[in-house]
Computed example of a mutant assay.
Amino acid sequence: MSGSSDKAMMEYLNALLEEEKKPVAEFDHEPVKQLLQKATLTREAPKPASEASPAPRAAPKPASEASPTPRAAPKPASEASPTPRAAPKPANEASPKPDAMQEYQQGDFQALFFRVAGLTLAVPLKSLGGIHTVGKISPLIGKPKWFRGIMTEREEKLQVVDTARWVMPEKLTPELEQSIDYQYLITLNDSPWGLLCEELVDSEPLHPDAIQWRKGVNEKRPWLAGVVRERMCALLDVNALITLLNNGSGHIQK
């Protein structure tokens, strides 16, 4: 990136939280190969469907003897219908709440730093699903421009997001878009969503006080948890980001 491009990126990042401009900190751009290997192994560990094999044991055909359960729940038990209301499934909607980032304001946490189109982004390692080398991406018709398509990894279908187009659509000129060279796909939590990135920078602990946290709700960029001042990079609110991606939109980009 040229000096003018770097300056534009700094101004853009500052504008996210309406903060005065600060100088960019110099840091090593060497890819974190060890982190890549660790993240990949970590992701492979939970994926092995071999663990799913015990499922058949937990639900073998002999369980058909469970048919007597209807006797335990005869028609008169219809009064128990209110119980579903007390424990509705919508509770799973609580997982992708933007305020989940508050836990990271309680103490130090590890974060992965990566680059996209000259902009440095950070994601808490606890919210990292895994890191994969970019492979064949199959596009889908009728999807927004930021949705690159599906990438299959170990029989898992990952939904690929063009990070630059999602994060800074207003800055993505044809020239900048052509210069982007995505190398990795960073998956988010246990979701199928993955963010494309050009370069893995490094991983280091972050202190809550070193971050300018978002105050209230950022309607234009709900995915922005805050800005790491010293490194001039945006910290992603992964849960909020997953919610937006599941909804198919959520902010200014198209």
Score class of each variant (00 low, 15 high):
4 S>I: 12
9 M>V: 09
18 E>N: 13
19 E>I: 14
23 P>Y: 00
24 V>N: 02
25 A>N: 06
31 P>C: 05
33 K>S: 06
33 K>H: 05
34 Q>V: 04
40 T>L: 14
42 T>Q: 10
46 P>Y: 11
48 P>M: 12
53 S>F: 11
53 S>E: 14
54 P>R: 13
72 A>T: 02
73 A>E: 01
81 S>Y: 01
83 T>P: 01
85 R>P: 00
85 R>H: 10
89 K>C: 06
95 S>V: 15
96 P>R: 10
99 D>A: 07
102 Q>E: 14
105 Q>E: 13
105 Q>N: 09
108 D>R: 12
111 A>M: 10
112 L>Q: 07
113 F>G: 06
114 F>H: 12
117 A>F: 07
117 A>Q: 11
118 G>P: 05
119 L>D: 04
121 L>V: 14
122 A>S: 11
122 A>P: 01
129 G>D: 02
130 G>N: 11
137 I>K: 08
137 I>A: 03
140 L>V: 15
141 I>H: 12
141 I>S: 14
141 I>K: 15
146 W>T: 03
149 G>H: 05
150 I>K: 04
154 R>L: 14
155 E>L: 12
157 K>I: 01
160 V>K: 05
164 A>S: 09
166 W>S: 02
167 V>Y: 08
171 K>D: 07
175 E>F: 02
178 Q>R: 13
202 D>C: 10
203 S>A: 11
204 E>I: 02
207 H>S: 14
208 P>H: 08
213 W>F: 12
223 W>N: 02
227 V>R: 14
229 R>N: 08
235 L>P: 06
235 L>C: 04
237 D>H: 04
237 D>N: 15
240 A>S: 09
241 L>Q: 06
242 I>L: 04
242 I>Q: 06
242 I>C: 12
244 L>H: 01
246 N>F: 08
249 S>G: 15
250 G>Q: 04
252 I>F: 07
253 Q>W: 10
254 K>S: 14
